[in-house]
Design a protein around this nucleic acid. Structure first.
Lengths: 207, 207, 207, 207
DNA sequence: AATGAATGAGGCTTCATTCAT
DNA sequence: CATGAATGAAGCCTCATTCAT
């Protein structure tokens, strides 16, 4: 009588996240299309129908999972251009660190993989992701470059290029880890260093 | 009576490729998991069961489709380091041209997307792709760099980095086109130029 | 503190009827098979599980709803042959008025529709309805005819026919309103007059 | 080799009707809402999924079943006012005979019951039924009455009443058989005679 | 008395695949 | 060679009902 209601309530509030977590694992392992509600329920330790108390459809779970991941990521993305001092190399290096952390240790690469697999049938989710993550990331990198130009470290010509090219290797690495790593492992830290080296050399060498 | 057998035979030999072509289109449009044999049959203008005369399972069609695409690609990949003269910039530029051509105009990005989506359940295909395409591409790029080092254009330090980083933006672009292009278009030629500029500047500037 | 228990009690006593009312509306709108406890609970402004404090199953609610309607109807049916003076035409006319009132304005046509739809799986309810309503109604009409014979208005041959035929058009009208009215409206008052006219002419003309 | 293909073909063409027949039985026994594809398949002696080769949804089967019944009925309805000679009583008597035959021995009462039960969710079917059967039946009865007026048997006042009242007892009888017959049997022939007697007396007695 | 949480049974439908011609 | 017919496995989802508070 003293504690049970609290446990219950905590349970209730925790359920959606438990389900999302289980679903995320299932999606990660099998991909969205091959995953089943039965699998999700099993992972979450609940019955298949209990899921429907919290989510209307299988797709809704996916949406919630991606939205959750995105929301957790937003702060990190915002922090890309903040939180660091020093020259352009240091700034960019920090930004790339943050991105790799999310992509490799975090859940971002799973989200990315899902978007690649299912994007065609989930256009709103793609748009959402682009709006909340991609655009913001792009802007953060742009800001970094502007700052480099302002300090005189970078040439003005650096402004003209599509900034996505500076982040592209990170996305590549994330997908590589998910797809080819078993068959052709990638040393993520070495790759990250090569990435940073390539971009900083490529930008700084231009002046 | 005189000609039918020939037509028949030609037909018979053409069938598998017709099916593969149809399947490729279906996979491209819906992804492998969401595609159906009914859809493939319709595109090929044949009956669903006729497919089974040529392929044992749906997965076998996918395998054949990917193998076919890979075989067509092998020559191109081999040509990456051949077929061109000049300084490192020219050589690398040519290689990247070839790669983008396959990824953007050709079917390579579809294959890539499928591998991302379905790789987990098709490990042999992943291994096959890695062996036939990725490794060879990697080696070609390595050869390019060695040649640059040999001519003195590149520093020896260029040898140490993971060469995948130099191609990564192309893969990124290929997937972007498939996933985000509707919501955030990418000017592929400008991106390619930025890619070439980044890598050549990043490598040449190091000496 | 002084009044709550009373409110509670009143509440408690009112609940079953509130539920029945809500259920009746739900049944009327969707039919029994398509109606849901969730829908009933919503209409009643209570939780789904609260219903189980008062009724054991969904079917039990239906039974109670029909029983309630039947009980409310019994007096009317009894009154069919009472409450009126005059010649046979006046008596019959009054009886038919009462019946149409229940069928059209009241809930009798809903009950009838439910019995048609679900009767096969609810034989006791069908038997109950027949016992409480149909038989009594039949007897009332019989009594009317006997009285007509007694006064000499009707021929003795009127006694031999199945009296249900004299009421049948009313049932027909009730169902028509429920099923075809949207697509082919029925002027209920005109129909009722035609009904009365047909039966009185048909009976009186026989002597 | 001689006969098998024919059997096959006949089978194929027969299937839809076999399914419709099975479905009709299932609907008749359980009502549409309570019927299942499994039940239909079992009655038809085929697998559940075979049904989908011929019908897109469960509702489509119902539609086909009702349409089929209606088409079979159309000729009868057309024949109501034809095919008979004699005075009004003979004509009307014949018409009612035809109607009862369909309602009692035929499948019309099942259709009627389904329309009562499911009409709310199948408005097009209700409209279809009204257009193809009810309207035509109504017109046939009207024609009968006009003929009676033309021959002088009937008063002109007979024209004013809603003709549905003259057929209503037949519909009533059909539903009674389906719903109350077990608990309160109806002698259908006696009822039909009472019906004919009532209407002819009621109409002829008016002049 | 009331309810939120949870679930098992069961229904519709899709689809890869086999069978028989 | 080609195909129409058929099906079993499996998935999503609904809903009446039970449990625990």
């Amino acid at each position: 009588m003293t504690q049970t209601p609290q446990i219950r309530r905590r349970r209730k509030e925790a359920r959606p996240n438990e389900i999302i977590k289980a679903a995320f694992d299932e999606f990660e392992e099998k991909g969205f299309a091959r995953s089943t509600l039965a699998g999700i329920a099993k992972r979450a330790g609940i019955s298949r129908t209990t899921i429907y108390l919290y989510f209307e459809t299988k797709e809704a779970i996916l949406e919630a999972a991606i939205r959750g991941s995105v929301e957790r990521a937003i702060d990190d993305v915002a922090g890309i251009a903040r939180d660091a001092d020093g020259d352009f190399r240091a700034l960019f290096s920090h930004a790339i660190d943050v991105i790799y952390a999310r992509l490799v240790e975090g859940d971002a690469s799973t989200v990315f993989k899902i978007l690649v697999s299912e994007g065609q049938s989930l256009p709103e989710l793609v748009a959402f992701y682009r709006r909340e993550i991609l655009s913001k990331g792009e802007n953060a990198i742009k800001a970094l470059i502007e700052r480099g130009i302002a300090t005189g470290e970078l040439s003005e010509t650096c402004r003209s290029a599509d900034v996505r090219v500076y982040v592209a290797p990170a996305i590549f690495a994330a997908l590589w880890l998910r797809v080819f790593n078993q068959v052709d492992p990638l040393d993520i830290d070495a790759f990250k260093d090569a990435h940073i080296e390539l971009v900083t050399a490529g930008l700084l060498g231009r002046s």
